[in-house]
C-alpha cells in the first residue's frame, strides 16, 4: 500500500503595482520552476493554487514536501508578472492549512 503524499502549504505575499490574479501567480511560479529546474523538476513539485486574495495580495500554494526548497527558490527568482515588475515573498511554510492561516495571519 502506498503512503499518502506529504504536502506543504506556502503563504505568498505578492508585491506588484497591478492587481493580482490567481492564474497570473501560478503562471509566474510555474514559469520560474521550469526555468530553474525544467519539466522534470516541475513534475515532482505537484504544484497547485489553493487560494488567492486579490485585495490583500496574498496567495496560498500547495506542493510536495520534497519540493519546498525548489518552489521557494523559484518563487524568489520571480521578478515580473504579466511583463510588469513584481516580487513574491514566502511568508510561511506549513504542513496544514489551518496552521498556515493561524501563523501567517491570513483570513480563512
Amino acid at each position: 500500500m502506498s503512503r499518502r503524499m506529504r504536502r506543504r502549504y506556502l503563504a505568498l505575499k505578492v508585491v506588484s503595482e497591478q492587481p493580482i490574479k490567481g492564474r497570473d501567480i501560478m503562471d509566474a511560479v510555474l514559469k520560474a520552476v521550469l526555468q530553474l529546474f525544467g519539466e522534470y523538476g516541475a513534475s515532482q513539485a505537484s504544484l497547485s493554487l489553493i487560494k488567492c486574495n486579490s485585495q490583500k495580495n496574498y496567495a496560498i500554494v500547495r506542493c510536495s514536501h520534497t519540493a519546498v526548497d525548489m518552489i521557494r527558490a523559484s518563487v524568489a527568482s520571480i521578478t515580473e508578472m504579466n511583463e510588469k515588475p513584481a516580487a513574491i515573498h514566502v511568508l510561511r511554510v506549513s504542513g496544514t492549512l489551518r496552521t498556515l492561516r493561524k501563523k501567517a495571519l491570513l483570513q480563512g
Partner: peptide, 15 residues
C-alpha cells in the same frame, strides 16, 4: 524593492 527578498528565500536560492 522588487529585487529584495527575505533571508530564507535567499538561502533557498543559493542552494
Amino acid at each position: 524593492q522588487y529585487l529584495m527578498r527575505n533571508p530564507h528565500d535567499y538561502a533557498a536560492l543559493v542552494t
